Simulated scan of single mutants.
Amino acid sequence: MRAVIQRVTQASVTVDGKVISKIGRVDARPTILAQTLTPLCLPEGILCLIGISTTDTAYESQWLATKLLGLKIFPEDKEGEAWGWKSSVVDAQYEILCVSQFTLQANLRKGSKPDFHGAKAKQPPGGDDARHMYHDFLEDLRTKYQADKVFDGQFGAMMDVQLTNDGPVTLILDSATDAPAPPKSKQPLTAEQKQRARDKVAARQGRAKQRTDDSAMMPANGTEQAKAGSTAVAAISQEKLISEAEQKSRELSETFKLAMTESYP
Rank of each mutant, 00 (worst) to 15 (best):
A176H: 08
Q205N: 11
T212W: 12
Q195Y: 05
V201T: 10
A176L: 11
R207W: 03
A202G: 01
M218D: 00
D174C: 05
P183L: 01
S215L: 08
P183I: 14
M218Q: 14
G206S: 10
K194E: 14
P183V: 13
Q195I: 05
A208T: 06
R211E: 12
M217T: 08
G222H: 08
Q193A: 14
N221C: 07
P180E: 13
N221W: 11
S185E: 15
A181G: 07
T212C: 08
G206R: 09
R204C: 03
S175I: 00
K184M: 09
A197P: 00
T223C: 01
T190M: 02
R196E: 15
G206W: 11
Q195N: 06
A197R: 15
A216P: 02
Q187L: 11
A181N: 14
S215V: 00
R198Y: 13
A179G: 07
T177L: 10
A176Y: 04
R196A: 11
K184L: 13
P182H: 02
A179M: 15
S215A: 13
G222P: 00
Q195D: 12
L189I: 03
E224C: 01
E224A: 04
Q205D: 15
P219C: 03
G222Q: 10
E192K: 09
E192M: 04
A216I: 12
Q187K: 14
R211I: 10
S215E: 09
N221R: 15
Q193T: 05
A203H: 08
K194R: 12
E192H: 03
P219M: 08
P180S: 12
A220F: 04
D174K: 05
P182C: 02
A203F: 08
R211G: 02
Q195G: 03
P183D: 03
Q210K: 13
A176E: 09
A191H: 06
E192Q: 09
R198G: 03
E224D: 11
T212Y: 06
A203Y: 04
A203R: 11
P180C: 10
S185P: 04
K184H: 09
Q193C: 02
E192T: 11
Q187S: 09
P188N: 06
A176F: 08
Q205K: 12
D174Y: 03
A179Q: 10
A208K: 12
Q205V: 05
S175F: 01
A179V: 00
A197I: 11
Q205W: 07
A181E: 14
T212R: 13
K200Q: 14
R204V: 06
L173G: 00
L173T: 02
T223D: 03
T177E: 14
D174R: 05
A202I: 10
